[in-house]
Design a protein around this nucleic acid. Sequence first.
DNA 1: TTAGGGTTAG
Length: 465
Amino acid sequence: MLPAPPRRPCSPMSLSHHHPAFELIAALRGASCPSSALRLYSLLRIRVRPTDPSRFAWRPAVLVLKPLSAAASLPLLSHFHAHLLRSNLLAYPHVASSLLRCYSLLSPALAHHLFDQIPPSTCNLVVVNVMLGSLCRSSDLASARAFFDGIPDKDVVSWSTMLTCYFSHSRLAEGLAFFRTMTFTTQLAADYVMLVTVLTGCASAGLLPVSCRAIHGYVVRREITFTMHLGTALINCYSKAGRLDYASRVFLRVPLRNVMHWTAMICGTAVHLGSEEAIRLFEEMSLSGVQPNEMTFTALLSACGHAGLVDQGRLFFELMVDKYGLEPTIHHYGCIVDLYAKAGKLEDAYKVIKAMRMEPNTIIWSSLLAACKKFKNFDIAGEGMEKVLTMEISEENSGLYALISDLYAMGGRWEAVIRVRRLMEERNVRKIRGSSSIKVGELTYWKKIRMVHGDDLRAYEYIIN
DNA sequence: TTAGGGTTAG
């Protein structure tokens, strides 16, 4: 029989700095590698027993689970899981939800299995929401939605998690409708995290600035805390919707502009005013004493790629590593590969892929392969094509199959062309034709667009979505 | 700042 977790939170006194575990807890919070976290945890176990009637009882376990999930080691996690079972710590919802989250990132199937074993007394809404998040990341949209529908007292996190699920499955219109359903049919108010999700969805859908203004209005009317993320998301949304003027108005009104606000503004500026102007803004940011982060360099490298500024891009990459000591992520490599590839420097692009410290993904390969097709270089494409065919290709990247098939045809490798076609049939890939969309009032028109004079768009062959 | 949801490359 598990001891019941304390029903009431402990009094502030028991959380005071005088608790013998306080310093160890602080050290554990800062621990990033699992071995040091586990060492501190063992020391803590001597000071804090699981029966300790304070929040200290479960906190060490929660804190140790963070570095443990980052280490991505299933054996280590199941070892700690066994300890949690032995010491009855899993009876605390805080511990159960943290463990479930760890499993969901490493093995969704094991997460599901663990969830089924959590007793009702422990399975509160947080635990259920973690499970929903796990389903959203690992399962299909319909299963996640069915689980969501079964949650009795949903809170804003439940709705927010489900909304993210729609967007991550590229179901933007349904996601926005889902958001409207929450605001119209429940008493729940969207908080700033949910609004960041909505704004990001609007931005990626390229909706008219009206949607951004509507969300902006919601933020103002409901007096929602104007956090850094919310400010950044608004700037992004406005600039992606083509209203750099509104974006900069938000930017200028942010009281403490930090690196994220600047980066969002640099992105928008690169698109609307060009790379030179974006680089100028970066210099202005540096002069104002704000340090760039990895996302700032992603924005700059991407801007250089669009403008074909190969040397400038390479300089930024070096600056990022040498001056700012930032480790290049897969996004930076992606930008650099694209930069070289678009400029026709296919060998340089390929060298970057070879030198990467992580496994290149389908986005990176498709940059290279698209350029190989454009510059009619079949030789460099070879290894990439074989590699990509062994990888999982998401539905939105299904164009990769056609690209590879074209490249093989270009090289006269007809047996490989047939192999790719067969693979497409086996994997049930539908050919998705290129399309564009615009939004007019409440309707989205998917169509081919022909530019007539500047902004004058004449649409034909449209299908109302 | 304290178990759960949110931002970057084609």
